[in-house]
Amino acid sequence: MMLNILIDDKKIEAEEGKNLLQACLDNGIYIPNLCHVKDMAHPQASCRLCFVEIEGEKKPVPSCSVTVREGMRVKTDTPSVRRLQRSAFHLLLSRHFIECKVCPANRKCELQKIAKFLKVGLKSNYPLLLPKAVLETGKQETDESHPIFNYYPNRCVLCGLCIHVCRTTHGIALLTFAKRGIDTVISFYGEEDVSRLPGDKCLACVNICPVSAITLKSLS
C-alpha cells in the first residue's frame, strides 16, 4: 500500500514498511547519510547524519530508523537538524586525514558532497584527532596486511558498508570491525591465504567505500 507523507511541504508517496530516509532519497530529496544502503534489514543508525524533524516528536530523529506512516509531516531543514548534522560532520572530519588532491575518492567522495550540501568546508571545527605520527609527518597510516587491499584508517568513517556488502555478496564477511571506541578500525585479520579469497575478482568493498579507505593495492 502506498502512504502519503509530507516532506518540507512536498507531498510524496511511499510504500508501507519503507524507511523514511529511503523514501526521501527515492523521491529526490537528499538527506546526508553515510551508513545507509537500500537493502539493509536493520538500519545501523551509526553515522548520525540523516536527522529530520517529525511533527509530534520533540527532538530530531535519524530518518533511517523511522518507518513511514500515513500523514507523516517531516522537515529536513530546521536549525536543530542542521546543528546536529553539522556537529556530526565536523566530528567525522576531525578524524579524517585530508589529502583530496591525491585521494582516489576525490570528486566522488561522500564527505565532499555532504560538505557542499551542509555549506561547510572540509576543515573541522574541532582539533584533529589523528595519531601523533600522522600529524607530525603529514603522512597517513596504511594497513598493508591484506594481500590485495590497502586500508587507510585515517580516511575511514566507519560506516560499515564494506562489511555489509561483503556479507551480502559472500554469505560471510571477510572483514570486520575490530577494537573499540575511538580505536575502532576495519580489519582483515587472519585472511592472508590468497587462494581462499575472492581476490581481485570481487571489489565490492572497494567500490562501496564512500571515502576510498579501502583501495586495491595494485593501483596505489
Binding site: T176, R180, Y189, G190, E191
Partner: peptide, 13 residues
Amino acid sequence: EIPVCEVYGVATF
C-alpha cells in the same frame, strides 16, 4: 566455522 577476522573482531571488543 566462522571467519578468523570475526573472532578477532569480537575478542578485541
